[in-house]
């Protein structure tokens, strides 16, 4: 049996274990949250190094993309560098393939993404593939990167402006402690009421809200049937989304035993299946494998 472990800076309340068979291989997939404790995450990564088949880093990004430029998040890189032997991924490779494909799939197979639909991405630099796919399909886009990460009420409307602002800001912003830019640990279990009140209208004006689940959740006001496109959701999260008035939930990663895992976990699973050195794995390898696995987004109507 192959063992894949996701070490997350997120809450340990979301810890989970599942066994699954993929392409004839048995997998034990485990998620271990460290409640925002950076040192505990480093220690855990060192303990797992060399003892499991692949590791995913959750609750943090190592790489952010805007256009062809890749930005390295300093805190994320520190975690990655703690692992010497086992392949370690942050999900960014899969976001650029699986999530892009999810958008195309929804256009082709559902009526959830007609041209001109108003889409809010709470953050796009951590999901640039998805952002580009929405733009290609003619969606009316609002990127909330400045609104929600920095509290600046400035909606970015185009991929070009997103790239331009990223080039100015990300080389330096990525050096800040990650918790200053993204909710980690216990913050993931609460909402930022001030920002919900101040910026909730961006959600209500949109028909589709897409992006990282913790960000989507943290700033979500009462909705009116909007579609949410995200990744990691537990049964508790689905109940929360239903209570908030979500119309439809789309998760980009497949469900294993009642919950969808993060892209970092799924990328770690693919790496374990590919059995190639991490640096030799291309986007095409992921795409080919995803087709063989026949992964499809999960679409759940909540009302």
């Amino acid at each position: 049996m192959k063992r894949v472990v996701s070490v997350s800076l997120g809450s340990s309340r979301r810890d989970h274990r599942a066994e699954v068979e993929l392409l004839g291989e048995r997998f034990e997939i485990t998620r271990r949250g460290t409640d925002g404790d950076f040192d505990r995450a480093i220690q855990l990564l060192k303990e797992l190094d060399g003892k499991v088949d692949a590791i995913g880093l959750g609750g943090i990004d190592v790489y952010l993309y805007a256009g062809r430029t890749r930005y390295v998040v300093r805190d994320g890189k520190k975690l990655m560098d703690a692992v010497r032997k086992t392949p370690v991924v942050d999900g960014s490779g899969l976001k650029n393939t699986l999530e892009r494909e999810t958008v195309y799939y929804l256009r082709e197979h559902t009526d959830l993404l007609p041209p001109g639909i108003r889409v809010l991405m709470v953050s796009a630099v951590d999901r640039f593939g998805m952002a580009e796919a929405f733009a290609e399909l003619g969606c009316d886009l609002t990127f909330g990167d400045l609104i929600f990460a920095a509290g600046i009420p400035y909606p970015i409307r185009t991929v070009k402006e997103l790239e331009e602002l990223a080039a100015k800001l990300l080389p330096e912003m990525t050096k800040l402690p990650f918790h200053m830019l993204y909710p980690t640990g216990k913050k993931q279990e609460t909402q930022d009421e001030e920002k919900v009140k101040k910026f909730g209208h961006y959600y209500r004006e949109a028909q589709v809200i897409a992006g990282d689940y913790h960000l989507v959740r943290r700033y979500m006001p009462q909705l009116d049937g909007q579609t949410i496109i995200t990744n990691t959701t537990t049964a508790e999260d689905v109940a929360f989304l239903r209570e908030k008035g979500t119309g439809c939930l789309v998760t980009t990663t497949p469900e294993f035993q009642g919950r969808s895992f993060g892209t970092n976990v799924m990328e770690a699973v693919l790496v374990a299946l590919l059995q190639k050195p991490r640096e030799e794995i291309s986007s095409q390898d992921y795409l080919d494998l995803l087709r063989r696995l026949d992964f499809k987004p999960r679409v759940v109507y909540l009302r």
Binding site: G151, K168, E172, M173, M180
Partner: peptide, 16 residues
């Protein structure tokens, strides 16, 4: 939040 905002303003003025 204010510290991030101040950093942001500085980068918007002088950032590459």
């Amino acid at each position: 939040d204010d510290i991030v905002r101040l950093d942001f303003i500085s980068l918007m003025i002088w950032g590459e």
